[in-house]
């Protein structure tokens, strides 16, 4: 039996091994384009100037609507994308934020634009409390517990007479002319969205964010590496609830009414998940792109077909297709194949 040492190919592989080791130790060079979101923000901030030359309320509404989802999806991403805990109950924090600020507005006349951060804190406190309980389980069990949370909240809100029960509450509209009525909410929502995206970026690049990503890969290993996984998870839950709650607060006053069947919808939770998955879970640009895509798609469905059944069918279909063919989302898939355009690399 002859010895089959393949010397030529062997030394090639040994070289490759050495190169591989070096590559691992070198930090990957990243070229991100932070100028792009900043330019976008400046442009959007100037957009209400259009109101001087005509009525562009619909355009403002669309941007505001998208911005609200950018904030919610980016907030959701902190828990779902960074820490890997998929929640289908985040509509609860949207509702809690909306109702908290809305009730203050209805009782004391203080605008939600002022109380939104407070609403965020209330949502965060609730998130912290809920997280203490539900983050004990992971994977499918966690997802189910989040659905149960939404169901419980819906029943409670539907039956709580102090906040209007199932009929909800009407909020006083502001006294600006139709031309300018939307503008304060427009800026508020834009600011919340920008703040959320910036915070998500800061979180991702902090030691805390690193810990979250570690525990999303392997919780036991993360723990043995000295990460207080429980504290990290629960804090991530609270943080993600904070941003969703703020968005809810402003949204309530913008709509001028609060109703459980508008705020506590599983479709709203589903949209957050969908946007992150479609755009790219765990990336910074992903939820933003996902939100833009879904809102555009939604408008298209409503404009062409109208019926809400079709909207639900369409949302489900897009979600399924996205999951099957682009499980990493647009940003994730492009990044993995090395084809991510520089303008979309905000990480």
């Amino acid at each position: 039996m002859a010895v089959t040492l393949q010397d030529s190919s062997a030394s090639a592989v040994i070289e490759a091994r050495r190169a591989h080791n070096e590559k691992l130790s070198r930090k990957a060079d990243q070229t991100r384009a932070t100028w792009f979101p900043l330019t976008l923000l400046v442009l959007l901030a100037a957009l209400p100037l259009l109101q001087f030359v005509g009525n562009y309320n619909y355009v403002l509404h669309l941007v505001l609507f998208t911005a609200s989802y950018v904030a919610m999806a980016s907030g959701w991403n902190i828990l779902g994308g960074f820490a890997g805990y998929v929640s289908l109950g985040h509509a609860v924090f949207f509702g809690v934020g909306g109702y908290f600020s809305g009730m203050i507005l209805a009782r004391y006349g203080i605008s939600t634009l002022v109380t939104a951060p407070l609403a965020g804190l209330v949502a965060a406190a609730l998130g912290y409390a809920v997280g203490m309980v539900t983050l004990k389980v992971r994977g499918p069990s966690f997802i189910i517990s989040s659905i149960a949370l939404l169901m419980i909240a819906r029943i409670l809100f539907d039956n709580w007479h102090f906040i209007g029960g199932a009929n909800g509450l009407t909020l006083p509209p502001n006294d600006l002319s139709v031309q300018w009525a939307k503008v304060p909410y427009y800026y508020a929502m834009l600011a919340i969205a920008a703040f959320t995206v910036w915070s998500a970026y800061k979180i991702k690049h902090s030691k805390f964010g690193l810990g979250l990503r570690a525990l999303s890969k392997d919780e036991i290993k993360a723990e043995s590496a000295g990460i207080d996984t429980r504290f990290y998870k629960v804090t991530a839950f609270a943080l993600s609830a904070f941003f969703v709650g703020m968005a809810g607060a402003v949204w309530g006053e913008y709509l001028t009414y609060l109703r459980p069947n508008i705020f506590l919808l599983i479709l709203i939770s589903a949209n957050m998940v969908l946007m992150c998955i479609l755009g790219g879970k765990g990336t910074i640009a992903g939820p933003v792109i996902g939100a833009i895509l879904i809102v555009a798609l939604n408008e298209l469905f409503v404009a062409t077909m109208g019926a809400s059944e079709i909207n639900i069918l369409g949302t489900g279909l897009v979600m399924a297709i996205g999951l099957i063919f682009f499980p990493l989302g647009l940003v994730g898939t492009l990044a993995r194949s090395g084809k991510l355009p520089r303008v979309l690399n905000w990480d």
């Binding site: 039996m1 010895v3 089959t4 393949q6 190919s9 062997a10 592989v13 040994i14 091994r17 591989h20």
Partner: peptide, 20 residues
């Protein structure tokens, strides 16, 4: 086996003795 490729194949004693 390394990096997904077969590097050496031979009698165990030979492999054991190879300095690389």
């Amino acid at each position: 086996l390394d990096l997904g490729r077969t590097l050496f194949e031979g009698p165990a004693a030979t492999v054991l003795a190879d300095p690389r």
